[in-house]
């Protein structure tokens, strides 16, 4: 296991280099001059434009730009955005906000999603099962911006239980956006859990557990659930990355200044340093989440061994 982990962590290095290079190229090939765009409709004096272009190394060939950026990163310098603010400072501000949102959404998914899946799967075909199946289908079918505005309208305006937008009320103001953000994945988790449970409840070892005289609770909770968690854990790990990066719509609807919006604005302004910095961070979240899943597989199922 130790050797396996070392190998996996070492694989992070090429992935890091490849990811940063790819993102860098993608930002670089966006047409238009980002410096000129900074001035908006007004004309920018040519001397200012030239000075800024040089400051951000935009006059150099792409490979040099990348080299300058990456060597800076290895010295702990993630560059600055066009306002002269260090990108590391921007990330330091934005990441905790998005992390809070993602953790809450993740919590909703795990707790409500798995619980709903168990309730539905244990008695396949009864009314609770049908309720879960129908409601998850509805949630999956509705686009997230509709869900977001609906939630805002109902629980923020009509019945003002939650703040409509913003993050001034601490953790509490994250609850509604997190529920919206996690809703679709929550529905998938419920369905995955249900399907795995239904499948495993037919397994021979479940029949054995019943014939040992164990209670239904123990047969399901101990003997079936652990075997049913592998697909769910896989989905959850990939979703953790998606939650961190894919919150642009939710962050916009609820006016939450997280990294989703930072990246979106960075792309609009062609701020290579901002986009590469944040996306590389997200790539690492994915890598680590995947590693955790692979380790969890071995914990959940002893037949899986890594050498």
């Amino acid at each position: 296991m130790g050797r396996y982990l070392t190998r996996r962590v070492l694989q992070f290095i090429p992935v890091f280099l490849g990811a940063t290079l790819l993102i860098f190229i993608m930002v670089w090939i966006i047409p238009g001059d980002p410096i000129r765009a900074l001035a908006g409709d007004r004309a920018m004096p040519e001397s200012v434009r030239a000075a800024l272009t040089e400051e951000y190394n935009l006059d150099k060939p792409a490979w040099q730009q990348y080299w300058l950026y990456i060597s800076g990163v290895f010295q702990g310098d993630f560059g600055t955005d066009f306002r002269g603010r260090p990108v590391s400072e921007l990330m330091g501000q934005r990441i905790p906000i998005t992390a809070r949102l993602a953790i809450l959404a993740f919590g909703f998914e795990v707790i409500i999603g798995i619980a709903a899946g168990i309730v539905a799967g244990v008695r396949k075909g009864n009314y609770l099962d049908n309720l879960v199946l129908t409601s998850t289908l509805v949630v999956i079918a509705i686009p997230i911006f509709v869900l977001g505005f609906l939630a805002q309208l109902l629980l923020g305006v009509q019945f003002p239980i939650f703040p409509v937008a913003g993050i001034r009320e601490g953790w509490f103001s994250y609850l509604l956006p997190a529920l919206v953000l996690g809703s679709v994945s929550l529905a998938y988790i419920a369905r995955l859990t249900r399907a795995a449970l239904v499948e495993n409840l037919r397994a021979d070892y479940v029949r054995t557990a019943t014939s040992k005289g164990l209670s239904r609770l123990r047969v399901v909770g101990v003997h079936t659930l652990r075997n049913s968690m592998i697909p769910v854990v896989t989905f959850l790990a990939i979703d953790l990355g998606a939650l961190m990066g894919g919150a642009i719509i939710t962050e916009t609807i609820f006016n939450i200044p997280g990294i989703g919006r930072a990246v979106f604005e960075g792309v609009q302004r062609q701020e290579g340093t901002v986009v590469v910095g944040i996306v590389t961070f997200l790539v690492f979240i994915y890598l680590i989440a995947n590693l955790v899943v692979d380790v969890l597989y071995a914990v959940l199922d002893p037949r899986i061994r890594y050498e």
Binding site: D204, Y205, T208, P302
Partner: peptide, 10 residues
């Protein structure tokens, strides 16, 4: 019959 599937693998 089949003790491999009848015993819980985990």
């Amino acid at each position: 019959q089949d003790a491999l599937t009848a015993l819980n693998p985990v």
